[in-house]
Structure formats: C-alpha cells, structure tokens
Simulated scan of single mutants.
Amino acid sequence: MRGLSMFIHPELTGVLAGLPDRVDASKDVDAARASFRRLMAPRMGPDARVTVEHRIAAGVDVQVIRPAGATGRLPAVLYVHGGGFSFGELDGPSPMARDVCVATGAVVVNVHYRLAPEHPFPAGFDDCYAVLCWLAEHADDLDVDPARVAVAGASAGGCLSAALCLAARDRGGPRVAFQTLLIPCLDDRGDTASMRAITDPRFTNTRLVASMWNVYLGKARGSNVSPYAAPARAHELSGVAPAYILTCGADPLRDEGLDYARRLMEADVPVTVKNVPGAWHLFEAYAPDSVLARETTAHWLTALRDALR
C-alpha cells in the first residue's frame, strides 16, 4: 500500500512523501546498515553535555555515558539500541542513549551486542544479559545505585529490554527498577491487525518485520520460540519491572505493543502507555524537528526520569 490511505499526522505527510522505499536487511544487510548510518549521522557527533568511556563489559563492547560534571551515586540505565537485530548506532553512543543520560542524569551503559545475521539469537540477548549482570556487579566501580537500574530500548532494543526483565525475574538476576519499551517488536507470530494493515514500503512494514524475525531467529524460527527472543510468548508476566510502552499508529508493531501493555496490567505490573496516532516506526529520526517528535521524546524521557528518582 503506497500513499496516504491510512491516517498520517499532518506534520509528517510532507516527510513521508519524500521517503524512498526501505532497504530489506535480509536481502542486503550491508546496504541496510549503511542506510541506517546515513539516517542517524546528523545526531552522532560529540556532545559536551556528556562524557563517554569505552569499556569491555563481560566480553561485550559498551560505552559508559555519564552526565558531564556529575558527582555522587547516580541511577543507571542499560540502553539497548534498535536496528532490526541487524544494525544500529555502532559509530558512537546512540543519540537516544545520550538523550537518556542528559534528561535523567543517569549513567547510561550503551551495549553493542552481536548482530544478526552473523550472530542470530541468542547471541545478542546473551550479550545484553551479561552486561546487565556486569552493571549490577560493578555498581560501586561505576558509582551507580543498584536499586535504581533501568533498561530501555527502541524497536529490537525494546524487545531485548523486555526479554532482560523476563530473564532477570526467571533467573533471580539483577533487580530491574523500570523498563522503557519504545516501539518494541515483541511477537514473531505477526498475527495482529496492525501487522496485516501496515504495508507501505517507505517505512517499517509487514514484510520487513517478517524478514527481521527470519534473520534474527534463524534455525530457531518455529512454534517453540523462546520468550527471551519474542517476549510476547511468555506465559506469565507477573513480577517483571514496571513499564512504559510507546507505540505508533502507523507501525505494524503497534498492536503487539498494546497487547503486551494490557497483559502487564492484567498481571498487576504498573505500566504507562502512549500511542502516537499518525506516526510510523521511528518517525522521530525522519522528522526530528517536528513538534510531534519533540513531544513524544519528552514524554518517555520524563517517565523514565521520574521512575529513577
């Protein structure tokens, strides 16, 4: 489906009209990675508001982002970048991770997990869980408060963040104080109304999501998919961290995010939900100066900041 037959926010119609078709990472992962680097490049420069230290944590490359001039024991956020499990902001700190650091005053550990197709599930999840454990174990070294450790991520990063909360609960792992799941992919089965409806080739759509899961799961694709790969497959959600879930109206992942929020509520897990009508997946990167993008970003950052107080 091309064109504006679905509702698109008036601020975004002109931006969408000028977008080319998205690159399918399952067909050309190098081209998809290059396309994402170009999209994020304007926001990848240095930022005097933060300091960045490169470290190896449990064998994984991470960046420890700290508010410039901050002292004392700070809250911490493990930030997991998005990118369909196959690409991401690997040339520097994720701009979203940097925004988290500035807005919340937290130490942010930005994890560069192994990527598919070279490293399908569970490689990326294992890396993220190992870094979460490392963060908790090195709280004194990092000068962070182990009682105020959150996880956050967008898209594939939202999936991995939700999976970390499930694993931490199941394994008696580090206590997670809050989970921020932004436009998360959570269900490999793709059986929702939004997944069937959103087919425009210019942004994340039904076909691209199906291809993403094929690449990420590899030989694990099938009926016995682990909830640490696709958190919607978890039978029980009680006991996980309080959550914030962001969805977008023109995103095929919308309904699985909203359904996960409903299931969290039913499990008596505190959850805040924000849906952005007329916006597509990661629209903020395409229209960063729009009022809609600024308001959406401010909303989830405020929720995360308040949760860490």
Rank of each mutant, 00 (worst) to 15 (best):
V149C: 07
R169G: 08
S194G: 10
R196A: 03
Y129Q: 08
D187T: 14
D187R: 13
D140H: 11
I198M: 06
A193D: 15
T192W: 02
C133Y: 02
R202T: 01
A197V: 08
A167S: 13
T180D: 07
C165W: 01
H138P: 04
D191G: 01
T199Q: 09
A210K: 13
C128T: 15
F178Q: 09
M195N: 00
N214H: 13
A193M: 12
L164I: 08
D187W: 14
P201W: 00
L181P: 03
S161M: 04
F203L: 09
H138V: 09
V176C: 07
G173S: 14
R207I: 03
A210Y: 10
L182D: 04
T206Q: 15
L135H: 09
A152S: 12
V151Y: 07
P184T: 03
D187V: 14
D145Q: 13
S155Q: 02
V144C: 08
R169A: 09
D191W: 08
L182V: 04
A136G: 15
P146A: 11
L164C: 10
N214P: 01
L181E: 01
D140Y: 08
G190P: 00
S161F: 03
V215F: 02
D126G: 11
D127M: 08
R196I: 01
L208P: 11
R169M: 07
L166Y: 07
C128R: 12
D143A: 15
L135C: 15
V151Q: 05
D188I: 08
W213Q: 03
L135K: 10
A197K: 04
A130M: 12
A136D: 12
D141H: 11
V131N: 13
E137C: 11
L135F: 08
R169F: 07
F178S: 01
N205T: 05
V144A: 06
A167V: 04
A156P: 04
N214R: 15
N205H: 12
A163I: 01
F203I: 06
T199S: 04
A210H: 15
R169Y: 05
A197W: 01
D145G: 12
D145P: 06
M212H: 09
T192P: 00
A130R: 14
A136F: 08
L132W: 02
D141Q: 12
S155M: 04
T206G: 00
A147G: 14
A163V: 03
G124R: 04
R207V: 06
M212G: 10
A167G: 10
W213K: 02
D200K: 05
C133N: 12
A147E: 14
V215L: 06
W134F: 06
A177E: 04
R202H: 06
R189N: 10
G153V: 13
T180F: 01
C165Y: 02
D143M: 11
D143I: 10
A154G: 06
D170F: 11
P146T: 07
D200Q: 09
D127L: 06
T204W: 03
N205M: 05
V144H: 03
D127R: 07
V149R: 02
A210N: 11
P174A: 09
G158L: 03
D170T: 10
P146C: 09
V149M: 02
A130C: 14
A167L: 13
